[in-house]
């Protein structure tokens, strides 16, 4: 029997998808959340939702679909509420993700000052390289809203960079 395409719907196919996509999804989630533990939780929840539908719904582009699910989850009010509550319940995930690179740069600190929607719009622009229309489709909002989120988000990044990041360093050197 010929091998079925990745999105054909078997559990083995989904396991293959998870094996290939977890790492890039985690990177994208890190850009969306600016927090390693939230990034892992978001990645896990995204894959779980995809896995639940795997085999029931034919997904033409599961990787793109996963990113859309992730974006929507990241700006979901209920998930936001859960993240903002300091609870016992997330602690079992605290040690799960492995930090293998730099997480203390100026950008994570700057992103932490942004709203989830601003972070999401910027991540879609700089990580996914989407234009305003593409970002609006992923986020499920108007292009005007995206422009506003990008503008405010970028300005906040610049402001943070002026005070704590590369722009401050540039000023001192200059």
């Amino acid at each position: 029997m010929d091998a079925e395409p990745v999105h054909s719907g078997t559990d083995a196919d989904f396991a293959d998808f998870v094996a290939v996509q977890t790492r890039p999804l985690l990177g994208f989630a890190h850009a969306l959340t600016a927090n390693p533990h939230d990034a892992w939780d978001l990645t896990q929840e995204t894959l779980a939702r995809l896995g639940e539908r795997w085999g029931r719904t034919r997904l033409e582009e599961p990787a793109a679909y996963a990113r859309t699910v992730m974006v929507r989850l990241n700006i979901d009010r209920l998930r936001r509420l859960r993240r903002e509550l300091p609870l016992l319940t997330h602690r079992d995930e605290r040690a799960a993700v492995e930090v293998v690179g730099e997480t203390e740069g100026w950008l994570p600190d700057a992103l932490a000052t942004l709203s989830p929607r601003q972070r999401t719009a910027l991540a879609l622009r700089y990580v996914e390289d989407l234009d305003v229309r593409g970002i609006a489709e992923r986020m499920g909002c108007s292009e005007g809203t995206v422009k506003s989120q990008l503008s405010r988000g970028t300005e906040r990044l610049r402001e943070h960079a002026r005070q704590h990041g590369p722009l401050r360093a540039t000023t001192r050197e200059g």
């Binding site: 998870v18 977890t22 990177g27 890190h30 390693p36």
Partner: peptide, 17 residues
């Protein structure tokens, strides 16, 4: 830098499953 900073846990498959 953010994109390359994290690696999934070694039991990621089982956690997702």
């Amino acid at each position: 830098q953010l994109d390359s900073a994290l690696a999934p846990p070694i039991d990621a498959q089982e956690r997702v499953a």
